[in-house]
Amino acid sequence: DESNKPILLPNESQSFERSVQLLDQIPSYDTHKIAVLYVGEGQSNSELAILSNEHGSYRYTEFLTGLGRLIELKDCQPDKVYLGGLDVCGEDGQFTYCWHDDIMQAVFHIATLMPTKDVDKHRCDKKRHLGNDFVSIVYNDSGEDFKLGTIKGQFNFVHVIVTPLDYECNLVSLQCRKDMEGLVDTSVAKIVSDRNLPFVARQMALHANMASQVHHSRSNPTDIYPSKWIARLRHIKRLRQRICEEAAYSNPSLPLVHPPSHSKAPAQTPAEPTPGYEVGQRKRLISSVEDFTE
């Protein structure tokens, strides 16, 4: 099969070098950035008060330690540790928490760990991170309901609301924008112990962030949302095809390698009803078989 044979790379090609550099910018793992907010007593309706908090309760602090690993920003190499735009020179604080497994990295933009500057009256330095995160974990210690939209931002799609209760338990629920209701189930609340709260809140936030990324990708319907490693695979396959075309153009005697095509017509299947918005969006999480067989 010609399409699977190794090909020689061009010795000097600026377009090839640019493509390789672009490939280096696509990590081999999925990345997520999640905002974390603490809401104190009497702050449920005040964005400024929430963003001005420099610490929270003892249970909130224990919750943070379970979310991930504490890292010092100045020691991080952005090409190895995903920071979601946090500055490593102290502009966004000294520490944050991050978490990773074999296929993804997540960083938490924690408002109480970011510096509260006197010259920044409206807390814009914090909002440029927190307001651009799709998902926020809100530790609501106010005793009042927290409403979506209290923290203004164009991309605040989903809130994971943590409400501490007695007996070391917590109520965990989801809020989302109306255009996200087909992807996020907000109907079920959970009672979770303090011990298990970081794991549950983190998983709910990661799932909500993946759904938000799919939702946000609708602005470019021709580019369905893939995982990062599938995006790398697609980029490599496009690069291979372009090299083959350039080689055939410079030397017409060489065969032009095309991806294999299936001449056999697909079997006719009964027509199915058109899937609704929710089903269609969830299918976009699934990769096409052509990603692996071309």
Rank of each mutant, 00 (worst) to 15 (best):
N251W: 11
E2M: 09
S28C: 06
T116Q: 07
T65I: 06
A111Q: 03
V192A: 02
L285Q: 11
H262N: 14
E47I: 01
L22G: 07
P255W: 05
R232Y: 09
L67M: 02
R242H: 14
F134W: 06
G131T: 15
N45F: 03
C244S: 10
S52E: 06
C169P: 01
T150K: 02
I161K: 01
M104F: 13
S212C: 15
Y167I: 02
C244G: 13
S136G: 03
Q154P: 15
I71N: 07
L256Y: 13
N209S: 13
L86P: 12
Y38L: 00
S46C: 10
V162R: 01
F16I: 12
D120C: 09
C76E: 08
D223L: 07
R232K: 06
V88S: 08
N170M: 02
K74D: 10
F95N: 03
V36H: 00
S28Q: 09
K33F: 14
V135H: 00
K33P: 04
V135R: 01
P27M: 03
D102S: 07
E272M: 08
D194P: 00
C124T: 12
L8G: 10
V214T: 03
L165F: 03
R59S: 01
K228F: 05
V192W: 01
P273Q: 08
L48N: 09
D194W: 00
N156E: 04
N53G: 02
G149A: 10
K117G: 09
N132I: 02
N45D: 08
P270S: 11
S263T: 08
A106R: 01
V172W: 00
K152Y: 05
M210G: 01
G85C: 05
E54M: 05
T96V: 13
A211T: 04
M104R: 02
I286H: 09
E54H: 05
P164A: 01
K121A: 09
K147R: 10
G280V: 08
K283A: 14
G42T: 03
V279H: 12
R177G: 10
L206Y: 05
W99T: 02
Y60L: 00
C98P: 03
D75K: 14
P273D: 13
E181T: 14
N209K: 01
Q241P: 11
W99H: 05
K283I: 06
R69Y: 14
S261F: 06
S187I: 02
A211V: 06
I50P: 02
P270C: 06
K190G: 14
P164M: 00
S250K: 08
K121H: 13
E278M: 07
G182K: 07
S142G: 03
T293E: 07
G93Q: 10
V160K: 01
D92I: 07
V81A: 15
C176W: 03
L197F: 00
E2F: 13
Q25S: 11
H216N: 05
P270D: 08
I7R: 04
V184P: 02
S13V: 09
V88G: 12
I34K: 00
P10A: 14
D101H: 02
L254F: 12
M210S: 01
G85R: 06
S15H: 10
S253L: 06
G84D: 14
H235E: 15
R284T: 12
G90S: 09
G153P: 02
R69K: 13
V289W: 06
V119K: 11
R218M: 10
D145N: 07
D118W: 06
C98V: 15
K237T: 14
R238G: 15
I230W: 07
Q43A: 02
A208G: 03
S288N: 09
D92L: 09
A231K: 14
N53C: 02
V184D: 02
G85Q: 09
L148P: 15
S187T: 12
